[in-house]
Structure formats: C-alpha cells, structure tokens
Simulated scan of single mutants.
Amino acid sequence: MIKRILLLTVTNVAVLVLLTAVISVLHLDRWLTAAGINYPLLLVFSLVVGFTGSFLSLAISKWMAKMAYNIQVIDSPQTEGEEWLVNTVRSLAARARIAMPEVGIYESPEVNAFATGPSRSNALVAVSSGLLSQINRRQIEGVLGHEITHISNGDMVTMTLLQGVVNTFVVFLSRIIGVLFDSFLSRGDEERRGVGMGFYVGMFLSEIALGLLASFIVAWYSRQREFRADAGSARIAGKDAMLSALRGLQSLTEGGSVIDDGRSASLSAFKIHGKPGGFLSLLASHPPLEERIAALERLPEAA
C-alpha cells in the first residue's frame, strides 16, 4: 500500500512538473493569464478529473467484473474440477509470492480468463467455462500463470496510473486548444469577454483526437505487459505450459471458436486473447498470438 501511495504521489508530481515546464517553455503562462485562464487551477482540475475516474474504476473493478460476467466465486469447491482450479491458483500464487486471489468461473463459450482487482492482495482470477472445457489442464495452468503474473506485476495499478496520466493531459490540453480555437475565431472582436462557442467546439474536437492518441499509448503499453505476463507464466507454471496454451488458443481461433464474447470491454486488457491485425491492432490490448508465441520461444529455458 505504501509503495502504491508513493507511486501515485510521484506520478502526480511528475505530471504537474512536466505540464508546468511545457507552459513555461512555450511562454503560454502569460497568454493563458491574458485569456482569463487560471492555469494552475486548470492543472489541479485536470489531475482530479484525470485520476478520479481511473481510481474509481480500479476500486470497484472486482465488483464490476462479478456483475458483468455473473462470476460464481468458488468459496468451497463442489467438484474435483473446481478443487483442482483453486489448488492450481493457490500453488501459482505461492510461487509468485502474492496473496491467494479469489477464484471464479463464468458461463461463456469464449475461451478466456482474466485477472482484476485493486491490489496484489485483493484480486480476482476468473476463467470461462469455455476455457475449462476446450483446452487441457496443462494449458489452463499456463493461462492461470499468465493471470497470476498480471497480479504479481501490479498491472492493474500500473494501468490505472497510466490511464490517469493520459487523461490528465487530454483534459488539460483540450481546454488549452479550446481557448486557442476560440481566440482564432474571435479575432477583431475586442469587446467580447470570456469564452465563446469556439471554445466548446475546439475542446470537444480536441478531446476526441487526443483521446484517440491516448488510447494508442495505453494499448501499446498493455501489449508490452502481455509479453511480460507470458514470461512470468513460463517462470512459475513452465514454459511448455504457456506455449501450449498460446498454441491451443491459436488453433481454436483458426478453427473459428469463440475467443471473446465481447462482454465488458473495460476488462479486455486483462484477458488472454489477441486481436486482428491492421490499423485496429494499434488499439489492441493484446499482441497477436503468433507474436506472443515467437517471443516466448526466444526465452531461455529455466535452469
């Protein structure tokens, strides 16, 4: 908890320092003041707006997942399969040196799994009924190792911090652009006070453009996390297990099986599946399966 608070504090300070430096270097401070913009207050507003939504989503992420997927948390295993699943997660969590997460199953034909939760000690690993029925246990162990590594690496908190930072820039810069656009439209109108319609149009359009750019950044980082999670699974579950899991998913994908049923897009960054190529690949939270397989094959065998 202390590390997360420190990371959040450092991130906030870094964002403030960077934005302040940009304003000073570009001499925007005098122009913003002349335009009636209190930029220090705008900075604080942007930080609050940027981080509040991200951390609220993180705080309720487990609840959201359970509601969105109707996840049945396994408190007391009722079948041999449930007992194996819980014991496997417990073993992998111990190897990763994290607290035992909650384990749940949701009914879906998709072949998938995800991890979510506000912290390493308060997390959830959920698997679909489709995954349990369509791949073997060694492959499932690789998938579980991947999700446990997401928790161990603190990916939920890291993604929240990154989303908060880019949100802050989007909020702040869109309002600056809105002022610039409004000033351009109102040239020669010396009697007008305050902002006009141009501000809102410029802010709206720039929020869309900057939001798309921010999505590219977040998606790129998410794809890098997947390679690390694959490597972590190879370490705690075995390289053969993770490779077999990815190849099994690739085979199912090529065979037309349901890899993702599309529910709850907010959780897609923590799923195991990949996305199609092309332009949309820039917005994909996961790299293509063939790239993940190739990266994993390059890893040296564990000693």
Score class of each variant (00 low, 15 high):
L92C: 08
T116M: 07
S119L: 00
E102W: 06
S119W: 00
F114W: 01
E80H: 09
F114C: 01
G117K: 05
Q134A: 09
S133F: 02
R95D: 11
V86K: 12
V89G: 06
V111G: 06
P109R: 13
W84R: 15
V125R: 03
V89R: 07
P109W: 05
V89T: 11
N122D: 15
R120D: 05
N87G: 05
Q134V: 03
A126F: 03
L131F: 06
V127Q: 01
G117E: 01
G130Q: 08
S119Y: 00
F114Q: 01
Y106T: 14
S121K: 12
L124W: 15
T88Y: 08
G117M: 04
A115M: 04
E107P: 01
G130D: 09
P77F: 13
S121G: 14
S133A: 13
F114M: 02
S133R: 15
S91F: 07
L124N: 13
F114V: 01
E82P: 07
R120P: 04
R137Q: 15
Y106Q: 08
V89K: 11
N122A: 12
L132Q: 02
V125M: 05
I105S: 11
P77V: 10
N112I: 10
V111P: 02
M100S: 04
W84K: 13
R90Q: 14
A96L: 12
S133Q: 15
E82I: 07
E83C: 04
E82Y: 10
L124K: 09
E110D: 14
P118H: 10
G117C: 05
L92V: 08
E80A: 15
E83D: 10
G104F: 08
L131R: 01
I135Y: 06
A94M: 08
V127S: 02
L92T: 07
R90F: 05
S91C: 05
V103G: 02
S76E: 13
G117H: 03
R95G: 05
P101N: 04
V103E: 00
A96P: 10
I105M: 13
G81P: 00
W84G: 04
E83F: 11
N136E: 13
E82Q: 15
Y106R: 08
S76A: 14
R120Y: 06
I105Q: 11
G130Y: 06
M100A: 02
A96Y: 12
A113T: 11
L124H: 13
L131I: 03
L92I: 07
P77L: 11
N136C: 03
S133T: 12
T79N: 10
I98H: 06
N122C: 08
E83G: 04
V103S: 01
I98R: 06
I135K: 04
R97N: 15
P101F: 04
Q134W: 06
N87H: 14
